[in-house]
Structures are given as structure tokens and as C-alpha cells.
Design a protein around this nucleic acid. Structure first.
Length: 598
DNA sequence: CGTGTTCCTG
DNA sequence: CAGGAACACG
């Protein structure tokens, strides 16, 4: 290992020395094209794509690309930075580290670059702020995250409201048309410049084999040295070109999307809050009919819990009747399109849908169920559930430190990340996995996964990839991780059923009498399983979800629904909607250590 | 056909 | 917790 390592170092250093001159020219070219940018474009979210690519270059340089996903609290605008840190990290890691090395040798250029980036970021923030201050954009700014769905949803406004909004719209219409026209022009300019930048960017790699090799070595630098030693020099070249093509395409389509988004934002009449929280009918229709809801889900995870109060109300409204027909494995991905996208806050919509045995007090429970990571100032957690003093007293102030608060990642950015990830996987699959390499999941990963289970019972694989960013994903690893959560669920549900039956045997009659607190045996069993050392503070939300699950099992058994062999699936369907956001700290590679330090 | 899920088993 | 079977879904 050591000999491999030093050998690689030597090669890198040698290459750097030889290429130093060429690199500084390259950097100057980039900076030059960057400053021409500065003159011509207005910063918009599309610009942040570039900014982030460039910025992540810097981040990669500074941290080796590993730690950059840790929330940077010192950042002036975490709202934007955190969202894309993953994509930029992942994407830039493979492509930009050579440039990062270049910059290391040229501090002046680096400073210039940084100043330019900061100025650009400041302008982006100004624009965003400006947009948010437009009248009635409040609704839009919430709603624009849901563009795909909105387009598919009928605008169901009361006439009066439509009138008032139309007035507002017409007031700003001329102004907006002009703004729109200018934006469009500027964005087209941006696209053009972007293409130029891309071309320059890739010319650098295509024209210089040494750089290419450098790229290859860097892109795999975090892998085992054994693997690298065995790589054929030609192995990565095709992949690097393939990646280049992918990146080009993605950047182009991202820009197109940006244009569309801007046009939409400015064209779309602002919608009242009522529209933001659609009726349950629409809500559910969307879940079933929108072919894109899965993608939208994953995309919206970044901000869903921050913008919206989280939602037991949505689970209340889920038509349990389907349960009887449900005999197959559930497409559980539905969950977040319901719970995170729209939070129906209309109590009236719930009536008639709610599960009678679970919801004796019809009004209060609809006032909102609060995601643990999101403490909405206007709602009280678990308002509708008869809490006893033990619960109320324990750990109330759940901090929202993890709130990511972020702008929308465009779908393209997300898919870019996905493609990059899979491309990286392609690269990896080129390399022989030698017995010595430690690519698998460690006990620490297992521990982390268990702690994450306190927040999410049904993580998507893309989410897992985000949160286990130090893991080299391949099919096997992915399914192992998924399998873990499947096992966690299995244990969880087994305990639930067991304790529900036990409660019935113990003579518990009313579902309200079922309380899960930190003193509960059920909680202790679960805590022992997922948090054996008891060194992690289990979030209150987990108690809430546990209690709901237990009550679901209880009432199902009481109602003899368990005669149906697939009776649990209805419960799974409910529980899968109750995932809350996993704190950002879990994205850190050594979060277990960090968490336990607290 | 690949992926995700449950169920069963060890 | 892993492996495997069975199933559903896009």
C-alpha cells in the first residue's frame, strides 16, 4: 500500500511540475471567459449552476472533496449553498479536481476567482431576494417548487379570489412581460456563454493527455491504491469522454430548464395559499396520476419540510379503503408526494376520511403534525394525541438546526448528479476490485443507518446515496443498504404487532390509551435495537411515529382486520408517509462520531 | 428487465 | 443481519 501510495504521489507531483505552465494558461483562459460572463449576464439560478461547479472546484480543493457536504454554517446563504452541495460535490469531484490542483499553485488567480465568485453569488442572492419580494410571490415561491405538479393540477380558485389575483396580475402584466423578455434574452446569452465555457473546459481535457491522466488519477484518488495501480491507462479515457458528453448535455438541458422555469415563474399568476394546499381529492389524484411524482419527490426532499408544516393530516386523509383491495407489494414511493409536497391544512377535507378509531377528536388533530426537524411556530406537535405529562415534559425543544432551507435543485441538476454517480460507478466497474480494498459498508455505516431509521423508515436509494456519500455505491452496496432498512422495518413492525396484541390482551380498550413515551417498554426495545449504546437522543418524532404505528396495529387487530393476510400493508402505507427529514449532519462521513460527541 | 418490497429462513 | 423467493411496478 505504502509503496503504491508514494508512487502515485511521485507521478502526480511530476506531472504537476511539467504541466505547471500549461495549467496557469488554462486557468487564465477560464478566468478570462469568466469575466466576460460577468459583464453580460444577470445572475439567476442558472448562473448558480456554473457558480456551484466552480465553487465546488474550490471546495474540492480545500477539503479533498470529502467534507464539503457538511453544512457550512458560516456560509452567508445556506439557503442555496446546501442544496447543491451534493451535486456539486459529486459532479465536480470527478471533473474538477485537476483544475483544483492547478489553482493551488496560483494563489493570485485563486483570489481573483474567489472574488469573482463571491460577487456573482451576491448578485444571485439579490435577484432571488428581489423575486421573493414581488407581491404575492409568497405563494409562488412555495408553489414553484412544485412546478411539475402545478401544471398538471387544475386551478381551482374561488371566483372572488380569481378576480383579485387577476387584477394584481394585470397590474404587473406589462412590467412582467418586459422583464420576461429581458430575462429571456439574458438567459439566452447565458446559454451561449455557458456553451463556450463548456467547450473551453473540455478542450482542456481533450487536448492534453497528461491532463487526462491526471484527471483519471484524481477521480479515483480516494479509492484503494491497489485498484489504481492496476488500472490500464486507456481504461478511463473513453469513460472520461463519455462523462464529458454527459456533462455537456446536462448543462445544456439545465439551462433550457432554467429558461422555462423563469418564464413560468413570471407568467404564472400568483396563487392564493388555498391553492398551495389543494384539496385532498387533487392531492390524491396527483399521487396516483402523476407519472413524475417519484422524481419530484426526491427533488423536493431538500426543502419540503422547511417550507411546509409536516403532515399527519395527510395521512389522516389517505383513503384507507384501498386497504381491502391491497394485496400486492406497495409502491411506497408515493409517500412523500403526499406528505411533503402538499400539506393539506383544510380540516374540512379530512372529515369522512379519517380513521375513526384513531382520531376521536376531529379538529385538533388536524392542526398539524410537526416534523421533528421543523418546528413551526404556529403549531404544536401532536396536538391531537392525548399526551400525558411524561411526554410533554421530555425534550421539547427539538432544534431545527438541520433545516436545509434551500432553493430548488432543478430536476436536471438532480439527474445530473444521478448520472454522474452512475458514471462514476461505470468508472469504478472498470477497475478490478481487489480483495484488499475496503469498499463495503462498515459497522459505523450500520450504526448510522440505524440512527437514520429514527427519522426515515423508507429512505429512497437516492437519499441513501446522498447520506452515505463516503460509500462507493454499486448495485450490491445499494441493495445491502436497502436491505438494512428493510430489516429495520421488519423488526419495527414485528414489535409493533407484538405490543399491540399485548395491549389488547392487557385489556386496553381505547386506542387513545395507547401512549408511547420514553418510558414505554416498546420504546426501550426499539431503542435497544437501533441505538444500543443509548448514546443518541432519539427524536421526538420517532416516538410519535411509533405511537401512531402501534395505534394502527391496535385498531386493525381490534377491528379484526388481521384476518386479511395482507392487512399490514394498509398500515405500511400509512407509516411510509411519516418519514421526516434526516438532519444534515447525517450526510457527514463521520457523523456517528460527531453525533455522539454532542 | 431492473429495482424495491415483503416474507421466510438461518 | 443476509440470502433467497415471490411479487409488483415502470
Amino acid at each position: 500500500m505504502n509503496s503504491h501510495h508514494s508512487k502515485k504521489q511521485d507521478v502526480l507531483e511530476c506531472q504537476e511540475a511539467q504541466l505547471g505552465e500549461a495549467k496557469s494558461n488554462v486557468l487564465r483562459k477560464l478566468l478570462k471567459s469568466g469575466s466576460s460572463y460577468e459583464d453580460n449576464i444577470i445572475p439567476f439560478s442558472g448562473a448558480t449552476i456554473i457558480t456551484k461547479l466552480l465553487k465546488s472546484n474550490k471546495a474540492t480543493r480545500e477539503t479533498g472533496g470529502r467534507e464539503s457536504v457538511i453544512p457550512r454554517n458560516a456560509e452567508p446563504e445556506p439557503l442555496q449553498e446546501d442544496t447543491c452541495s451534493n451535486s456539486s460535490q459529486e459532479s465536480a469531484e470527478a471533473y474538477l479536481s485537476p483544475l483544483g490542483k492547478i489553482s493551488l499553485n496560483h494563489l493570485d488567480s485563486e483570489r481573483l476567482n474567489e472574488e469573482y465568485l463571491q460577487a456573482k453569488r451576491a448578485r444571485v442572492e439579490n435577484i432571488i431576494r428581489g423575486m421573493n419580494h414581488l407581491p404575492n410571490v409568497m405563494a409562488t415561491s412555495i408553489g414553484k417548487d412544485c412546478d411539475n405538479r402545478e401544471n398538471k393540477r387544475k386551478q381551482k380558485l374561488p371566483q372572488q379570489q380569481q378576480h383579485s389575483f387577476q387584477q394584481l396580475v394585470s397590474t404587473h402584466k406589462e412590467q412582467k412581460v418586459e422583464e420576461r423578455r429581458q430575462l429571456k434574452l439574458q438567459l439566452e446569452d447565458m446559454q451561449k456563454q455557458l456553451r463556450q465555457l463548456q467547450e473551453k473546459f473540455f478542450q482542456i481535457y481533450d487536448s492534453d493527455d497528461g491532463m487526462n491522466e491526471h484527471l483519471n488519477q484524481n477521480s479515483v484518488a480516494d479509492r484503494s491504491d491497489n485498484e489504481i495501480a492496476d488500472l490500464g491507462p486507456g481504461c478511463f479515457l473513453d469513460e472520461a469522454k463519455h462523462l464529458a458528453e454527459t456533462l455537456k448535455q446536462e448543462l445544456n438541458s439545465a439551462m433550457s430548464q432554467v429558461v422555462d422555469t423563469v418564464v413560468n415563474v413570471f407568467l404564472k399568476p400568483p396563487r392564493p395559499l388555498l391553492q398551495v394546499f389543494p384539496s385532498l381529492e387533487d392531492h390524491f389524484a396527483f399521487n396516483r396520476n402523476n407519472p413524475d411524482f417519484h422524481t419530484a419527490n426526491q427533488r423536493l426532499q431538500c426543502f419540503g419540510n422547511v417550507i411546509f408544516p409536516s403532515p399527519l393530516d395527510s395521512f389522516v386523509g389517505v383513503p384507507l379503503p384501498c386497504a381491502n383491495d391491497q394485496t400486492e407489494a406497495l409502491p411506497l414511493v408515493v409517500r412523500k408526494s403526499a406528505s411533503e409536497h402538499h400539506q393539506s391544512s383544510d380540516p374540512g377535507a379530512q372529515i369522512g376520511h379519517s380513521h375513526p378509531s384513531l382520531h376521536p377528536s376531529s379538529l385538533s388533530e388536524n392542526t398539524g403534525f410537526i416534523s421533528p426537524s421543523f418546528c413551526h411556530p404556529f403549531s404544536l406537535p401532536l396536538a391531537g394525541y392525548s399526551f400525558q405529562s411524561t411526554l410533554g415534559a421530555s425534550s421539547t425543544g427539538y432544534s431545527s438546526k438541520d433545516s436545509p432551507g434551500s432553493m430548488d435543485l432543478s430536476r436536471e441538476t438532480t439527474s445530473l448528479r444521478t448520472k454522474m454517480a452512475s458514471s462514476q460507478h461505470l468508472i469504478r466497474s472498470c477497475s478490478p476490485v481487489l480483495p484488499g480494498s475496503t469498499e463495503g459498508l462498515s459497522p459505523n455505516h450500520l450504526k448510522k443507518a440505524k440512527l437514520m431509521f429514527f427519522y426515515t423508515r423508507y429512505p429512497s436509494s437516492s437519499m441513501l446515496k446522498m447520506y452515505f456519500c463516503d460509500v462507493k455505491f454499486n448495485r450490491c452496496i445499494t441493495s445491502q443498504l436497502i436491505k438494512w432498512f428493510s430489516n429495520f422495518r421488519e423488526f419495527y413492525y414485528i414489535q409493533m404487532e407484538k405490543f399491540a396484541r399485548q395491549a389488547i390482551n392487557d385489556g386496553v380498550a381505547a386506542v387513545d390509551d395507547i401512549i408511547v413515551s420514553r418510558d414505554s417498554e416498546l420504546y426501550k426495545v426499539l431503542n435497544m435495537h437501533y441505538n444500543k449504546e443509548n448514546d443518541f437522543e432519539v427524536p421526538e418524532s420517532f416516538l410519535e411515529v411509533s405511537q401512531i404505528t402501534l395505534r394502527e396495529f391496535f385498531s386493525a387487530i381490534v377491528a379484526s382486520r388481521d384476518v386479511d393476510p395482507s392487512w399490514k400493508k394498509a398500515i405500511y402505507k400509512v407509516i411510509c408517509k411519516l418519514d421526516s427529514e434526516v438532519p444534515q449532519i447525517f450526510k457527514s462521513a463521520n457523523c456517528v462520531q460527531e453525533l455522539l460527541q454532542e
